Amino acid sequence: MEVRTIKVFTTVDNINLHTQVVDMSMTYGQQFGPTYLDGADVTKIKPHNSHEGKTFYVLPNDDTLRVEAFEYYHTTDPSFLGRYMSALNHTKKWKYPQVNGLTSIKWADNNCYLATALLTLQQIELKFNPPALQDAYYRARAGEAANFCALILAYCNKTVGELGDVRETMSYLFQHANLDSCKRVLNVVCKTCGQQQTTLKGVEAVMYMGTLSYEQFKKGVQIPCTCGKQATKYLVQQESPFVMMSAPPAQYELKHGTFTCASEYTGNYQCGHYKHITSKETLYCIDGALLTKSSEYKGPITDVFYKENSYTTTIK
């Protein structure tokens, strides 16, 4: 009895394709271990004539594949690729409408935090270190965002349907971005203890939790000093293409032309909904596939993004 075979390709990165001759009487799992086709788990399936010449994702289970996976995804987590594939199996079914010149995501599976993050990423200057993220990001900007969303979920250790947080998501993504040249110098002034300067680099240099107003941050924000008295913390120097200011959701007025974009969060910790506000020729609110415009805006804002380049204080 002759062994019926077909020729397929296996890959971990969709760049390096490895030619395989597979036995049609055995499952993919018996031949390769966990195997995925377009995100779908085909591990328990036997090869079919229609699979001839198709590319299958496999887990990096030998040295060659491990090197290829690390170079593309910059992670050695053995569960990463499987999590990416199972997320992709959902995100490829989502709709990605162009809204006001940006790629958004039609609401499904509690994905409003991903839509808000995706919209924000198209408006701030950011370059990702893992080629996987950078490639998928370019495709997302062009309207094909399924891979990018699935990668975000995998890097953030999230599953489809789980509630997510924009600030946490951005923080994970910033860790995989090139923020080497970003720098922030802060000064804390206390009447009792004097003053202390701190220099922050990388992710810490672009994120701040405690106030939404970048102007206020430049002037000074009140913080408790270690001595128990009130101290003032203010920005001395900022070198970065953008800054992200966050605070627990509270009524906040966004003035046209003073910011790049913002995240609105309605609801409580267990259950809520994100919308995205962007400042173009007027203010726009993007909620999944829905767009509304207004000249002014007041609502429960939790993150505001500002364009920056270089700032030095005039406070002496």
Results as ranks from 00 to 15, higher is better:
7 K>Q: 08
165 D>F: 02
128 F>M: 02
191 K>N: 12
250 A>M: 08
231 A>P: 00
231 A>T: 03
204 E>T: 07
132 A>H: 04
281 E>H: 05
154 A>H: 02
196 Q>P: 02
307 K>R: 12
255 K>Q: 13
62 D>F: 05
157 N>P: 03
291 L>D: 07
253 E>L: 09
226 T>K: 14
18 H>R: 10
83 R>D: 05
270 Q>I: 10
36 Y>H: 06
8 V>D: 02
244 M>L: 06
46 K>C: 11
23 D>T: 13
307 K>Y: 10
282 T>C: 13
28 Y>M: 06
172 Y>V: 08
139 R>G: 10
297 Y>S: 03
206 V>E: 00
141 R>H: 09
44 K>G: 13
168 E>K: 08
60 P>T: 06
295 S>F: 11
154 A>S: 07
98 Q>Y: 09
182 C>D: 04
138 Y>P: 08
72 Y>N: 08
5 T>N: 11
42 V>P: 02
36 Y>N: 05
257 G>W: 01
78 P>T: 08
200 L>K: 10
17 L>R: 12
246 S>Y: 06
268 N>H: 13
194 G>T: 03
206 V>M: 03
295 S>I: 11
182 C>L: 02
15 I>M: 08
189 V>S: 12
268 N>K: 07
305 F>R: 01
210 G>Y: 00
97 P>A: 12
278 T>A: 09
81 L>R: 05
144 E>D: 14
164 G>T: 05
299 G>P: 03
280 K>C: 11
52 E>A: 13
270 Q>P: 06
234 Y>L: 07
78 P>G: 12
275 K>T: 12
103 T>V: 12
26 M>F: 08
71 E>N: 09
174 F>V: 03
203 V>N: 06
149 C>H: 03
127 K>I: 09
9 F>L: 11
252 Y>V: 13
24 M>C: 15
102 L>Y: 08
68 E>I: 05
94 W>K: 02
313 T>Y: 15
272 G>S: 02
259 F>L: 01
304 V>N: 00
10 T>I: 13
161 G>D: 05
275 K>N: 05
25 S>F: 15
247 A>H: 06
211 T>S: 12
175 Q>W: 06
22 V>L: 12
279 S>T: 09
250 A>S: 11
258 T>G: 08
291 L>F: 10
87 A>E: 06
9 F>Y: 12
11 T>G: 02
96 Y>G: 04
97 P>K: 09
37 L>M: 13
71 E>D: 15
66 R>I: 12
257 G>T: 05
200 L>E: 09
174 F>Y: 06
132 A>E: 00
137 Y>Q: 08
